[in-house]
Design a protein around this nucleic acid. Structure first.
Lengths: 166, 166
DNA sequence: CACCATTAGTTATCTAAGAAGATATTTGTG
DNA sequence: CACAAATATCTTCTTAGATAACTAATGGTG
């Protein structure tokens, strides 16, 4: 970025901003595939959405969540999530369960097979995070990244809610 | 939970790492749509890949680049990029040009209409970056984010090249 | 020069996901 | 209670992009 080492009042240019955002993007798209390596339900690396679903169900009570909540958490439309759940169910990793209290909702529930895969995936994923995120950034870097990302996420989420209302 | 690995950078737990990575992901997916607001070739917000292509062509000499290079830069497969170029060409934003020196290559070249859109898009995008990235993070935060993202990108890119060889 | 590996681009086929619409259930209000 | 609005899920249709097979051009190497 700024090549002039100088005062802390140095302005951020348009180029700096575009570069920063580009780096953010590229970091994610270069690193993501590394973090799913070798988590292999079908011989290939696991897909991002599968991993997200398994991980969230694994850490939920009873290993289950309502379809709609899960869809929201993994940022899919309801229609899109229906089909993701179909695929996972077809492969034996989850089952749908009716909810007794509210008959509109369907729980997505991990099977034993799904839970096993989720735990294996999580362990492997964490090891890869240490190798490909913690190692290059260091503890300080990881915390700095998390801090900025959190600010960004919260601000953007809030902004989108405001826009949604208007 | 944390695996103690002996180096001095090991106060970070598994949870911390998963959280950090989740934040990174969420920040990107929450913020991205905000940054393409109102850049509207067809009444809707512009798609990410369109914007990337237009921006890169706009800042290239003669507003053109070889198809394959552009595909790589926007992280699309060659087949996928062919169709993206088809769409942009069908909408009048670019044209294909044969290269005289190497008759395998085709240049994707911005039209006047494409250049106009690119410049409008860039201006708007930068304004949105200031509003949704610079404002919440501050200069210091933007620089911190860029620094960590760059380390991550470079390290991951290098790692993937190594893996590709093996 | 002849041959083979590499690179650029297109085409066909397949999958993932969004959008819109349909149905069923629940909730809130008079 | 009756009825309108909201919510949860699924279905159909369409599109974006990955993969793989194919053509054409280039560059080495014997």
């Amino acid at each position: 970025m700024g090549t002039k080492a100088g005062t802390d009042t140095e302005q951020i240019t348009d180029e700096d901003l575009i570069t920063c955002w580009g780096l953010f993007h590229e970091a994610l798209s270069e690193t993501t595939p590394l973090l799913l390596q070798g988590i292999a339900p079908c011989g290939k690396d696991m897909s991002g959405p599968w991993f997200e679903v398994l991980l969230r169900l694994q850490r939920s009570p009873h290993h289950r969540l309502p379809m709609s909540q899960l869809a929201r958490e993994v940022s899919l439309s309801s229609g899109g999530f229906t089909k993701l759940a179909d695929r996972l169910e077809r492969n034996g990793y989850l089952v749908r369960q009716a909810c007794a209290l509210d008959r509109r909702v369907t729980y997505a529930t991990l099977t034993k097979k799904g839970l096993d895969l989720a735990e294996q995936a999580r362990t492997k994923h964490v090891a890869l995070l240490r190798e490909y995120v913690l190692a290059p950034l260091g503890e300080r870097g990881v915390r700095a990244l998390a801090e900025q990302a959190r600010k960004l996420r919260d601000n953007s989420r809030h902004a989108r809610e405001e826009l949604g209302k208007g």
